[in-house]
Design a protein around this nucleic acid. Structure first.
Lengths: 157, 157
DNA sequence: GCCGTTGATTTGACTGAGTCAAAACAACGG
DNA sequence: CCGTTGTTTTGACTCAGTCAAATCAACGGC
């Protein structure tokens, strides 16, 4: 599995190094991993890996177009390998889970609104906020308290 | 102008306090202000105001539905008073300027894609990334260096 | 108009993600 | 195999935002 990445790194002018291969492997396993998850996961292959190195690797991958950085409001940045296919994201307000959505409308859903004053749009980013199945179940359970504890809405910060 | 806010605060069950009125006035003047801008601006009316108080005020306004928090990737959170009209944002990659866009598609642009596995969507957030007129001009100027200094792309972090 | 309750503000310390810079290191081309 | 040059490492640092306890003031009742 690891050897697959080498040519792709070289193709964008990046050297093939152990930290980079480790990070790519973690990303392949965790399609929406945050920096911390990546550090932890990559240490399985490279125990001395430091967080700063991972930031450097991720920067290199993003500039090389091998990875994409997504930053849902209120959460640390996530990274994914799916690039160049204009898909969007579904984020659960309760647990922070992220899922991919291929935009049903086409390549660029809303790229054509009347843009004010000469603004040139190069990307439309869409985030769908809601509740994943698991958290709906949990919220339903919490709203029927058993012993008089107060009811707490299912929405987290 | 200040007296306009009092009933709206009371309408959502919030007390009318000087910090809150000051913050609301700043938001009326700066439609997309970050916390720091708000602190600085509000001190014109209330010099002893602390950043933490502003965070508290903003939290209260957002929970009361009088303000909305937007968090463009890679920048501190911004706050705006336009709420409940499903508009979206245009962000300049170079200077961070934010402009409002009324979504041309309607109330909820892409709310109907095939959502995987029982995910319930309650909001679609759209951010258009690009370059504002001023930064296009600057970028054009920089790409024709006068005295041999290196050319730097117009994109900031 | 004054007082007490209760929510708001203040103060100060703290967290956590991410950045910066300099020195040691290793991948790749010759 | 060696040297160059891009990477990694180390460590200190910044900045936005959070938390908790104590003080303070808005509002409803008297």
């Amino acid at each position: 599995m690891e050897t697959t990445w080498a040519p792709r790194l070289r193709a964008v002018g990046l050297r093939v190094t152990r930290p980079r291969l480790a990070v790519l492997d973690v990303l392949a396993d965790h399609p929406h991993a945050d920096a911390d998850t990546i550090v932890t996961g990559a240490r399985a292959q490279h125990p001395t890996l430091s967080p700063q190195t991972v930031y450097g690797v991720l920067d290199a991958l993003v500039s090389g177009g091998l990875a994409r950085r997504i930053e849902p409001a209120g959460a640390p940045a996530l990274f994914e390998l799916r690039v160049g296919d204009n898909h969007h994201h579904l984020v659960c307000r309760s647990c922070g889970a992220v899922a991919d959505v291929d935009c049903a409308v086409g390549a660029a859903p809303c790229l054509s609104p009347a843009t004010p004053a000469g603004f040139v749009v190069d990307e439309a980013e869409v985030v769908f906020w809601g509740s994943c199945r698991d958290c709906q179940v949990e919220a339903a359970a919490e709203s029927v308290p058993i012993d008089g504890h107060e009811i707490r809405g299912g929405t987290r910060a």
